[in-house]
Amino acid sequence: MTYYSRQFRTGLLAAAITLLLVTFAGFAAAQPLPALTGRVIDNAGIIDAATESALTARLAAFEDRSSDQIVVATIANLGGEAIEPYANRLFRAWGLGQAGENNGILLLVAVEDRRMRIEVGYGLEGTLTDLHTKLIIENTMVPAFRAGDFSGGISQAVEDIILVLEGNAAELEARAERYEEQRDVWWESIPVILFFILWGGLFGGSILFAILAPVFGRKIGPGRYRWLGINVSYGSSGSSGRSSSSGSSWSSGGSWSSSSSSSSFSGGGGSSGGGGSSGSW
């Protein structure tokens, strides 16, 4: 009886957990996020073509100089969600900003909700403060949007953001330099990595072989073992069976990703903790 009830309880628990997971998955999939197709994603269709290409060029040039990733996105509506959590989800899904620096900025406009938000990555919160974003929204975007000039408001806001980021020139250069160093780091460490693979393979391999031979090998005499076709003897003077061709070299299959591919745009893996501010018009 107890056995059955226990089994039943376990089953119930499993069902509950599954339900919970399904519910969470359902939450996550509630509002589908747009794809990151470029630096300007005008899903609401409020930015004219000339402004869009000018903005894209401006933002690409700025990223080349500073490594800061600024993305402009417009959507038709938020589907009932508040703009703050939506912007944060979008920011994290796209991974704006470079991975170690978190220097991304998302300018999001939800047209039907008449809401806009500037979401700032962790790394830029100190430079582009909440007050800056609030002032840009209230003084630049809101008046232009009220006049119906979406293109002008957005490109002026982008200019303001870049102005603030450039205003702290020393910090900007330091950030770009740090990023360059980070990007260069694996070139410089190739000799080191090769060194470790070579010597680690030679020494580590032979030591491991010596340890494992008595465990897995066949004993062919006192203190002598044969494993993988190689005789290993443990004695005071010398080992007769040198591991001449023990192919025990570990190659680490690390995937080095070079992140700067200029043709297609993708997020650098940065994150945001909800910095920035929102407004409405």
Partner: peptide, 10 residues
Amino acid sequence: EGTENRIAVA
């Protein structure tokens, strides 16, 4: 406002 939003995210 920014802090309230950061609290929500955290």
